[in-house]
């Protein structure tokens, strides 16, 4: 058993294009997840029971079912209700909605951490709801929500490996292709593990920077 660096170099471009696909899909999915999570958390804070129930159901379904099932429902089940999407958009939407369930919980905990007196005072002063959220609640909860958000994005990157199963040409898919073409096993998987590890260390580092930056501000 020896390590053949030539194979890795020969398949370098293939792996790098997979890496790029993984990165941009994850970036878009993270944005979608944050947006969905924030929207659900805001709706959840409304004093309106049916909306609360719907939000709870969304969160429970997203957190209670495997992402693979969600992807399969979207990709293979979508066409039977007239929703035909390519693999990549399915990946982005699937990962985004899935992450949204987790981000909603993160944001909800963040909103709860702010003393209700502050919101009441702001209301009394006639500050509009939008401004309360953007200027009072979100800046204060940043310190609390940045660490779990970083974790969540890391989890999202790792979940994105599953998109290979619904034929998105991302990092894991391209690696399996490399395995199938070269019959080498060690080299491709070592390379792919390293690449994932690099992305994840990068995100963890960025998270640390954000944490220090906003930790100081408050």
């Amino acid at each position: 058993m020896s390590f053949d660096i030539d194979i890795v170099l020969r398949y370098g471009p293939l792996l790098l294009s997979g890496l790029w696909t993984t990165v941009y899909i994850c970036a878009l999915a993270s944005l979608l997840a944050v947006a969905a999570g924030l929207a659900v958390a805001l709706l959840y804070s409304l004093p309106f029971h049916p909306v609360k129930l719907l939000c709870r159901a969304y969160i429970e379904v997203m957190r209670g079912t495997p992402i693979l099932i969600l992807l399969f429902i979207l990709y293979y089940g979508g066409p039977s209700i007239g929703l035909t999407l390519d693999a990549e958009p399915v990946g982005i939407v699937g990962l985004g909605l899935y992450g949204g369930g987790y981000f909603a919980e993160i944001f909800r905990a963040g909103f709860q951490s702010i003393p209700p007196g502050q919101i009441e005072a702001a209301r009394m002063l006639g500050i509009p709801r939008r401004m309360i959220v953007a200027r009072i609640q979100i800046p204060q909860m940043l310190t609390l929500i940045i660490p779990p958000s970083t974790n969540q994005v890391i989890i999202l990157v790792k979940e994105s490996a599953l998109l290979s199963i619904i034929t998105v040409a991302e990092l894991t898919k391209n690696t399996t292709q490399m395995v199938n073409e070269t019959f080498a096993v060690i080299e491709p998987y070592v390379a792919v593990a390293l690449l994932y590890w690099l992305i994840i260390e990068g995100i963890a580092f960025a998270g640390g920077v954000l944490e220090r930056r906003f930790g100081r501000a408050s």
Binding site: A161, T172, A193, Y196
Partner: peptide
């Protein structure tokens, strides 16, 4: 630090 799918395949 690596996806479970990759670990499984390894």
């Amino acid at each position: 630090g690596t996806p479970i799918l990759v670990q499984l395949l390894i």
